[in-house]
């Protein structure tokens, strides 16, 4: 295992050094580098650096300018390398294990949660979890890069719906089976949400630390009648008893303004999108009714009249 030997000793040497080491210095210090020709050493060294970086070892390249001519030097900053101790109690670590076995993030390749758990201290007690995964969450292509950008406060640029967007990423949110990015759209000077499966191509990240995160990040608006800007209009919708519970389950937190004795309820919606409201109310079929405001109710009746009239046409 000459390679394992090299990678371990290379990592140790780069962690221990106080000044960046040049390739030539590393060739002297790491066994396995000094018994091959110069060209072979270069190739091996490059590959080893790539392998280490792939594992997440932060091998840094800096310019060493106290030699003439200046050369590339290498180091690993301990603060970048070391996992800070999260202080997990045994039961907390076990809870994370259970979570990792019951919820799978699909489509990120072979990089497992296992390795993360080992770094955090492994599995304190072997436990039989039993049963299958409880849920699967898809990982669309831009997810990992956007997560990194959100944590490191890097501005991202990407193509979306035929236009290029520049966004300060605040939060990634999985709701209703889809991933959303919520952030500040720099060109539109407003908070916007983007569905990750509608990205065209990969996002490009800028420099870290390039914006301030707001203290209270707004959540993605997922109710169809809430999309859009401008001041909201209140709309009251009657839900019959058979569907009131189902609709309120699907949209937790709906404001109920009236509970009728037959089990029907009236909910008040803050509407920014009239087509969104129409889609919601039509989804109720004849088990619900848009009560107010009168203008929106008249619009809806007009829409239904046009549909009903087509039969005779």
């Amino acid at each position: 295992m000459a390679k394992l030997d090299r990678l371990l000793n290379l990592t140790a040497a780069l962690l221990e050094t106080h000044v960046p080491l040049t390739a030539e210095q590393l060739r002297e210090r790491v066994p396995g580098y000094n018994d091959v020709s110069g060209a072979a050493f270069r190739r091996t060294f490059e590959r080893d650096k790539d392998d280490l970086r792939e594992l997440g070892v932060p091998v840094e390249t800096v310019t060493v300018d106290h030699v003439d001519p200046p050369r590339s030097g290498y180091t690993i900053r301990r603060s970048d390398y070391e996992l800070e101790d999260p202080g997990l109690e045994a039961d907390e670590l076990a809870a994370l294990h259970l979570a990792a076995t019951t919820v799978q993030l699909e489509g990120l390749g072979t990089v497992g949660a296992d390795e993360a758990l080992r770094k955090l201290g492994g599995l304190p007690e072997r436990q039989s979890v039993g049963g299958d995964a409880l849920g699967a969450v898809p990982a669309p292509a831009p997810l990992a890069e956007l997560f990194r950008a959100a944590l490191e406060r890097r501005v991202v640029t990407f193509d979306y719906g035929g236009t290029s967007r520049t966004v300060q990423p605040h939060r990634l949110q999985f709701e209703r089976g889809h991933w959303y990015l919520n952030g500040h759209d720099v060109d539109r000077e407003a908070v916007r949400s983007f569905r990750l499966d509608r990205f065209d191509g990969a996002p490009i990240s800028g420099e870290p630390g390039s914006f301030e995160r707001p203290t209270d990040v707004t959540s993605v608006r997922l109710r169809p009648w809430e999309y859009g800007d401008g001041d909201p209009v209140d709309a009251d919708v009657l839900l019959d008893a058979e569907i009131a519970g189902v609709v309120r389950n699907e949209h937790p937190g709906l404001e109920v303004v009236e509970e009728r004795s037959d089990g029907a309820v009236v909910v008040r919606l803050q509407v920014r999108s009239v087509p969104g409201l129409r889609n919601f109310v039509l989804g109720l079929l004849d088990r619900g009714e848009l009560l107010a405001p009168a203008t929106l109710r008249d619009d809806l009746i007009h829409w239904l009249d046009a549909l009903a009239a087509r039969r005779s046409a």
Partner: peptide, 24 residues
Amino acid sequence: DYFRRPLRLTHTEGLRLLTAGRAL
């Protein structure tokens, strides 16, 4: 002094475990 702490989590490792934990 080397190898006294584990290597920090990569973003992908963190994302995977945090997603599972948050979901549950």
